[in-house]
Write a protein that binds this DNA or RNA. Structure first.
Length: 372
RNA sequence: UCCGGAGUAGCUCAAUGGUGGAGCAUUCGGCUGUUAACCGACAGGUUGGAGGUUCGAGUCCUCUCUCCGGAG
């Protein structure tokens, strides 16, 4: 087996899990946040910088790398790790979400998905088998099954048909995947916002016996309370001895709420994207660095933060960089936001260890400005 | 001094004589398995000034001011 999950303890106060995930490229302490590096790069960050902020694993993308530069090229380069100079674990998303987000450019059938490239309009076809083949070429530590992410809202009938197809596709992915000792393939539970469908999907996917499971189809525009509710009845259905991954979630409150509901892994573009767009996550809440009120603020972005950005630069300077459209500004904010979430998860792990995650949530929310 | 050109939003510029717009800048908002250094909103005007022609003038006419270019 490529990976092994070790449950260290559960928080007595919240039930959250503290664990370790052993992978071919090292051990990951969970719960963990995974920075997103869609095109074989976490935008604006070097691998060295990612290590400096304690990134343990990053995510990359099948769809994007298949289109450009091509998975065969990456295979020829010696695999994704070597190609991008990252020797720690990598998880690759299957392209299922791109199917969801490509909208009118794609056509879904039982066989797979036909779509037009967003780059040049060329026609392509990705099947479950193809998604596995691509990810085998990339050589990621954790591969994701090719799924269909249903939109929100979607009616019961549509979601049921969609999740059943996701199950059939998951089976095909598993059958196509042979490199099981070097790469782990995770199954994805769908089912939208319907309890009976989540139960059905969980049963079908777990019956296929994957080394890890993710919850997909959340964080697609539904209210937060609804997402938490779905998690509350979905994670208890998942095996305790396997990692649980909530796909696409990454706001600070969602991470904490997800961990409390039994999630071990998260990924999200939010910190890197809003960082590039000029918003920082700080212990005191959100900071939009371009706002005029920071013009003469010579204080750090977050006085409680120990990241490179906060230790060396003022809000005034960061604002200047953004106003002047200087590339360093978005690099520094990306660096800070990723550090902030990685550090948040570190504190969450400590709080689980100390059996006080609910207390921690309360303290964090109060400072950040979230309502409990 | 003469000749020519130009004066419209903070800037660069649109607008048959018929409801003065855009891009950028400003201010603010959004972003959740990246089609995203992106997207959106608010605000911003006595069209250099004064007359005139006209039902109606940014647009045509007269005078005037400023700037640019050329000549002297």
């Amino acid at each position: 087996m490529a990976i092994k999950y070790e449950l260290i303890k559960t928080c007595k106060q919240s039930g959250a899990r503290l664990g370790r995930l052993h992978t071919p490229h090292g051990v990951i302490e969970t719960p963990i946040f995974m920075p997103v590096g869609t095109q074989a790069t976490v935008k604006s960050m070097t691998p060295e910088e990612l290590k400096d902020i304690n990134s343990q694993i990053i995510l990359s993308n099948t769809y994007h790398l298949y289109l450009r530069p091509g998975h065969k090229l990456i295979e020829k380069a010696g695999g994704l790790h070597k190609f991008m100079n990252w020797d720690k674990p990598i998880l690759t998303d299957s392209g299922g979400f791109q199917v969801f987000s490509l909208g009118p450019l794609r056509k879904i059938s039982e066989e797979g998905v036909e779509f037009r490239s967003h780059l040049d309009g060329s026609k392509h076809f990705i099947s479950p088998e193809k998604a596995v083949e691509i990810q085998n070429s990339l050589g990621s530590d954790i591969m994701m099954a090719f799924d269909e992410c249903a939109p929100y809202p979607a009616d019961h009938d549509y979601v049921k048909k969609s999740l059943e197809r996701t199950t059939r596709w998951a089976k095909r992915c598993k059958d196509a995947h042979e490199n099981t000792d070097k790469q782990a393939l995770f199954g994805i539970i769908q089912g939208g916002m319907y309890k009976d469908l989540r139960e059905q999907s969980a049963k079908e996917i777990i019956d296929l016996d994957f080394p890890g499971y993710s919850v997909g189809g959340l964080s697609v525009g539904e209210p937060k309370d609804l997402m938490y509710e779905v998690l509350e009845y979905t994670t208890p259905l998942m095996p305790k001895d396997k990692p649980r991954y909530l796909m696409g979630v990454g706001s600070p409150d969602d991470l904490i709420e997800g961990v409390i509901r039994g999630i071990d892994m998260f990924d999200c573009v939010l910190p890197s994207r809003i960082g590039r767009n000029g918003t920082a996550m700080t212990s005191q809440g959100k900071v939009v660095i371009k706002n005029a009120k920071h013009k003469e603020s010579f204080e750090p972005l977050d006085p409680e933060c120990d990241c490179y950005t906060c230790k060396n630069y003022s809000r005034s300077y960061l604002r200047h960089l953004f106003k002047a459209n200087e590339i360093l500004g978005l690099r520094l904010l990306t660096n800070h936001n990723l550090y902030f979430l990685l550090n948040l998860m570190k504190e969450v792990r400590q709080a689980i260890m100390d059996d006080r995650l609910l207390d921690y949530r309360k303290e964090f929310f109060l400072k950040y400005g979230y309502e409990l």
